[in-house]
């Protein structure tokens, strides 16, 4: 994780060994408040990485930097070998026009804590919206695919419902289907179950488990340690804007090495 390949190496190694996400000394400040300090990490293709840590540790901000919803202050963040939202200029990186950044985001799906479904569209229309509007997929084709995706998240019979008429767990599953409709190569989950009633958490985690099993590369900011233990390949514990500890989730959860990690886990487990 700490020894980075240079971008020249990526080209030589070919597409398959390029890490899906590569963060190189990423820092981010809001005014004088430094929320991310020199974050470096790598996510392989098909890897499921869970980001855990106390609130305010910078894990959500880091996730939002990956698809350029937030600007980084310094450092490089690339997805599939390409900087997101910036153009590489050697020792400097140059911010892209928003239109170009929008194109890059098509390949990165994101699921939000508060679902953020479009309330004026039915579940089906929510899932169809981006393929039709962004990729120009013909409506009939997008519709068939949306039905397929809704069936995949167990909501085949809810396609004509507006979000207001769905439970939180169902809304979040529609949101996952909506992100998958763009055929992303990477999925970002920002505390996907934190706004749900406890009894609805399981159905969303089930969908995410199946997605992980299908080989999707996923970065999940979560407080669900059970999910991390069972599904994640890597667990990253962040606090105060730095990565405190990284490793196999079963090992980290059972036997944390750092005092800070121990203290945090003793409270949540």
């Amino acid at each position: 994780m700490t020894d980075h390949e240079t971008s020249a190496d990526h080209a030589a190694n070919g597409a398959d060994t390029t890490p899906m996400v590569l963060a190189e000394a990423v820092s981010k400040s809001f005014g004088s408040n430094e929320v991310l300090k020199d974050i470096s990490l790598e996510v392989r293709r098909g890897e499921v990485l869970c980001l855990v840590g106390p609130s305010g540790s910078g894990k959500s901000t880091f996730l939002r930097c990956i698809n350029h919803l937030e600007r980084v202050s310094s450092g490089r963040l690339s997805v599939d070998g390409q900087l997101v939202g910036y153009r590489d200029g050697g020792d400097k990186i140059y911010e892209m026009h928003p239109k170009d950044a929008a194109k890059q985001r098509r390949d990165i799906g994101m699921v939000f804590q508060r679902f953020n479904l479009f309330p004026h569209m039915t579940a089906l229309e929510n899932v169809m919206e981006a393929p039709v509007q962004v990729k120009g997929v013909p409506r009939a084709q997008a519709k068939a695919r949306a039905h397929e995706l809704l069936a995949r998240v167990g909501l085949a019979d809810r396609s004509d419902y507006y979000p207001a008429h769905l439970s939180g767990g169902q809304q979040q599953r529609v949101a996952i289907a909506r992100a998958l409709a763009m055929d992303p190569k990477l999925m970002l989950f920002d505390e996907p179950t934190s706004a749900l009633d406890p009894e609805l958490v399981g159905e969303v985690l089930d969908v995410m488990k199946n997605l992980a099993a299908s080989g999707m590369t996923m970065i999940v900011v979560t407080h669900e340690m059970g999910f991390a233990r069972e599904v994640a390949d890597t667990l990253v514990f962040m606090d105060g804007g730095v990565v405190v500890e990284t490793g196999d989730p079963r090992e980290v959860l059972a036997n944390p090495q750092r005092e800070r990690t121990k203290a945090f886990l003793s409270k949540v487990l």
């Binding site: 698809n67 098509r106 799906g109 939000f112 953020n116 981006a130 962004v134 949101a175 992100a179 763009m182």
Partner: peptide, 11 residues
Amino acid sequence: GQNEAATALGM
């Protein structure tokens, strides 16, 4: 959040 969700979808 609506703006964010649309942006994240590449709109």
